[in-house]
């Protein structure tokens, strides 16, 4: 249907029913229908990763997925990282290690980092650089982003150890 379709999707743990045009991109639904503007748009060609969210736990570019495809799925955005227990270790790492400057790529970069650490709790610098290579940052030169992820890895291991 090119008319609007009703979908049910869980975003940051909360279930939403949303009416979307089939051509609406997931990032537009998150930003405009749900008013969660932490997920950004930086290009038109799936090149920059500013729009990265977790789809059923995996980091994906929300500008290259249709909103209707989120029907029945779970989405996590930057707004879903902080819990009642406080900041996610990745958020803490980005602040502690100066892993951001203008902040525009940061939400996407953090979502990719969160997924990396879920899969590989003790990544090498090389692992981190490869994992974040779908996310462009124009400010930091990536050095402190690597440190931020390492900080988070240590913090997470400390918590579980």
């Amino acid at each position: 249907m090119s008319g609007k379709m009703a979908i049910t999707t869980t975003v940051n743990g909360e279930e939403h029913e949303v009416l979307v045009e089939p051509r609406m991109l997931l990032v537009n639904m998150i930003r405009e229908s749900l008013h969660e503007t932490g997920t950004h748009i930086g290009c038109d060609t799936s090149s920059c990763g500013a729009c990265t969210v977790l789809l059923d736990g995996r980091p994906v570019k929300s500008c290259t997925i249709l909103a209707v495809q989120a029907n029945g799925r779970e989405i996590t955005t930057v707004e879903g990282l902080e819990t009642a227990d406080g900041l996610h270790p990745v958020q803490e790492g980005f602040k502690e290690e100066h892993g951001l400057q203008c902040g525009y790529c940061t939400p996407g970069m953090m979502m990719t980092s969160v997924a990396l650490l879920a899969e590989n709790p003790d990544p090498s610098e090389d692992d981190i650089r490869k994992a974040i290579s779908g996310n462009l940052c124009r400010c930091t030169g990536y050095v402190n982003i690597v440190k931020a992820v390492q900080y988070a890895a240590k913090k997470q291991q400390g918590v579980t150890a």
């Binding site: 980091p59 570019k61 490869k130 994992a131 290579s133 779908g134």
Partner: peptide, 12 residues
Amino acid sequence: AQHIADPLIRNR
């Protein structure tokens, strides 16, 4: 697989 597009696109 390690060199197609980028890691995010590879998830999809």
